[in-house]
Amino acid sequence: GKANESTFQNDIIKQLIANGWLLGQPSGYNRKLALYEEDLLGFVQETQPEQWQKYGKLYPQNPEQHFLERVAAQLSKA
Rank of each mutant, 00 (worst) to 15 (best):
T47N: 13
F67R: 02
A78E: 13
F8Y: 12
H66Y: 08
S76C: 03
R31I: 03
A3N: 10
N62E: 11
K57S: 10
Q51L: 07
E37F: 06
F8M: 11
L68P: 02
A72F: 09
T7I: 12
V44E: 00
S76Y: 09
G56R: 03
Q15E: 14
I17F: 03
K54G: 01
N30M: 07
P63L: 06
F8V: 05
V71T: 09
E50A: 03
L40V: 15
F43L: 13
I13P: 08
E46P: 01
L75C: 04
D11N: 12
P49K: 02
Q61I: 00
Y59W: 13
W21T: 10
L68H: 04
D11C: 02
H66N: 08
E37D: 15
N4L: 14
A78M: 15
Q9S: 13
Q61T: 02
Q48T: 06
K57G: 05
S76E: 09
T47M: 11
E50M: 02
G20K: 00
G20L: 02
L58A: 13
W52S: 01
E64K: 15
I13W: 05
A72L: 04
Y55T: 03
E37R: 14
S6H: 12
L41N: 05
E46R: 14
E38K: 13
L16F: 13
K32Q: 14
Q15H: 14
K2L: 06
K32Y: 10
K77I: 05
Q45N: 11
K57I: 04
L41Q: 06
V44T: 07
H66C: 02
E69Y: 04
Q15W: 14
A72M: 08
G28K: 12
E64A: 15
F8E: 05
Q48D: 10
N62H: 11
Y29D: 02
I12A: 05
N30I: 04
G24D: 04
V71Q: 09
L16K: 05
A18L: 11
S27N: 07
Y29F: 12
Q25D: 15
F67D: 05
K14M: 12
S27D: 11
E69T: 01
S76G: 07
K32N: 09
E69S: 10
N10P: 00
A34Y: 01
P26C: 00
G1Y: 08
W21I: 04
L41M: 11
N4H: 06
L68D: 02
Y59H: 14
L16M: 13
L68R: 09
I12Q: 14
P63W: 02
D39T: 10
Q48V: 08
